[in-house]
Amino acid sequence: MIQNLVDGVLVGSILSLGAIGLTMAMHMLRFANFSHAELLSIGAYAALVFDGLFGAIHPALAEAIPPLSLTWSLTLALLLSMALTGLSAVAVDKLVFKRVRAKGGELSMVFASFGVAMIIRNILGLIFGLNPKLYSQDIVFAIVVSRDPFLLIKPDQVFTLVAALLIMFILHLVLSRTTFGYSLRAVAENPTLAQVSGINLSRMIVLIWLIGGGLAAAAGVFYGLTNQISPVLGRDLVLPIFAATIVGGIGSIYGAVLGGFIVGLASNLALVILPSGYSPAVPFLIILAVLILRPHGLFGEERT
């Protein structure tokens, strides 16, 4: 039970990072982006490549930082991967979404995002193979925190949680303290009025993809660090991340953070009563529950 709670918080922090970018893009561009979870995969694989590259350039970088399995090279790779994934999100928008948007039809965007997800997922599979990969072949033993109740935690998991919270805190500062943060909220509130006030809408869209992609890359690397990297990573996480945005209310960044933790906790606690095979269905049950109890989520506003 305690183990499920702790695991739930750890998974929750990863889902939160993914959900923030998704909820921003969904609010601004008004479409359910089914390809967002593929950004996590891109981030995870990009970091894998950079990690190998740095390790080859300077062997000292490939040393693990005890007690983690994380290496210095992976830390650097994480930062580079966040930048690269942000740029690829912008590129996908330029190549596909922007053009479909120009033709009108919000629902065509949803179709397009399914197609994009399909292409990214399978190209990653073709390049890196279908078998799961790991950042480190070393076995890192979990630390027994207590025997009764039994609780195991891996050092990497603690690092992941702290890093995710730190990233979210930095985002909070940016949103609440900078002109950019104000502009972002203004655009989300009323795009036309924001443009009248001199905010460049297309530049804001680029920034949102950059931030969303960067956060997704971090989530992907953290997922790879605590689980494994595989081409179906996006497919497995797309529904939980959507559930997190719906729980929080589409468009609410703080809601997405909270939603991520709620979905992570609920999915892990559900394992107490359900066999583990059923866990992919849990996010759907959460979505149903939210739609029945509070259709616009915890912090969402009514908008059609």
């Binding site: 969904m26 008004r30 479409f31 359910a32 089914f34 629902l107 949803v110 797309v238 529904l239 959507f242 559930a243 719906i246 589409i250 992919p280 269905a281 996010p283 759907f284 049950l285 979505i287 149903l288 739609l291 259709p295």
Partner: peptide
């Protein structure tokens, strides 16, 4: 968006 996500979810479930 809700219908899109919920129908996607029902297929997974």
């Amino acid at each position: 968006d809700y219908l899109a996500i919920a129908t996607f979810g029902v297929a997974v479930a």
